[in-house]
Amino acid sequence: MNASKATLTACVAALALLAGCHEPVSVTVYEAGEYKGESDPLLKAHAKSESKEALQKRFSMGQSDR
């Protein structure tokens, strides 16, 4: 009885240990000249003409010669 309990405990412990070794693997296969990273939300936001105008306004306010 005790031996079977010990075996069961050992099995559970071994499973828990093995589960701890698990590592999620995601492979990125690179292709020449192709960006495969996360997309940048700035690209969409910055495509609007308002944001470009805001930057131009800020430039003329702060950096132009007086």
């Binding site: 990125t28 690179y30 960006y35 495969k36 990273g37 996360e38 940048d40 700035l42 470009k52």
Partner: peptide, 18 residues
């Protein structure tokens, strides 16, 4: 690993995960 990308207005950025 092509981790660079360029925005519409020419800012060169990169992905540190790649």
């Amino acid at each position: 690993v092509d981790c660079f990308y360029t925005t519409d207005d020419g800012i060169v950025l990169h992905d540190k995960d790649l």
